[in-house]
Amino acid sequence: MAFIELKNVSYKYPYTKDFALHDLSCSFEKGKFYGIIGENGGGKTTLCNLIRGLIPHFYLGKLTGECLIEGKDIREWDTAELSSKIGYVFQNPFTQISGIKSTVFEEVAIGLENLGVPKDEMIERVIDVCNQLDIGHLIKNNPNELSGGQRQRVAFASIIAMDTDTLVIDEPTSQLDPEGTENVFKIINTLKHSNKTIILVEHKIDLIAEFCDEILVMENGTVAFSGPAHEVLTKRELLEHKASIPEVARFGLAMEDAGKPLERVPVTLDEAYKLIKERGR
C-alpha cells in the first residue's frame, strides 16, 4: 500500500468560491523522490498543506474525498504526531523564522528541542546541518535580521535537522540566487541518497529532471499528468500546457519532428550528451 494515498480529494479554502484542489487522486510511495510542477495557483502548495495535515487541522474549509497517510485518514491524525513524521519547508521564508531565538544556531535547534533530543546530540546535529546547508558562517547571527535567501536556508536547515522520514519541500529556491540554488540542490541530492521520501515543489525544471523519480504536473487543482520522471518530461502534450519541459527534451522532440530522432528523448544534459555521442559513432 502506498504511504500517502489521495482519492478524489476536493478542497476549498474558507471564504473562497473556487476549489483549490479538485477531484485529485494520486499516491506517494515510501523512499521515492517526487517532483511537483505546474502553473502558479495550480494547487501545489495546497497539496503540500493537505499531506502535512495543515488541511484540515489548521485551514478549515471544505474537504471531501479521502486522504490517507499510512492508511489512516488525515482527519484522524494528530498534527503534533505528523510534525515528527513529515517535515515541511514552506514557500515563504519570511514567516518561517520563529522570532524567539537570537542566534541562527538556536533557531536551527528549535525542532530538536521540541522533539526532546538530548543536548549533546542536538549540538552535533545542528553543526552538521549548518555545514551541509552552508550557513556555518551565520550561526552567530540574529535570525530576525537575515535576508530572504538566508532565511530560506535557515528554515530548511531547521527542518532537515529534525531528520523526518518524509520531507515536503515547497519551492526551496524561490528566494535564492543561482549559487544558493545549486547549494540547495546539493543538499537535496544528499537527501535523495538517504532513503527519505521526498516531495519537492520546484519550478526549475532542469533540476527536477535530474533528481526526481516521479513527477506530478498540477493544473487547476488536479493532477494533469503523473508518472516516472522520464515519461512525463518527454510528453508532447506538456508542450501545449503551461508547464515547461527541460530544454533538452524540447530539443529531442524537435529532432523527432525533423525526422532525425535520438534513441530516446533526453531530459538532462548528461543524457543528451551521451545520446548524441552514441549517434555520432
Partner: peptide, 18 residues
C-alpha cells in the same frame, strides 16, 4: 503558527533545551 507547528511545537513527551 504554522511554521512553529512544522518544528514540532506541539509535540508531546519531553522537551529539551539548547
Amino acid at each position: 503558527a504554522i511554521a512553529m507547528d512544522a518544528r514540532a511545537f506541539s509535540h508531546e513527551g519531553g522537551h529539551t533545551y539548547l
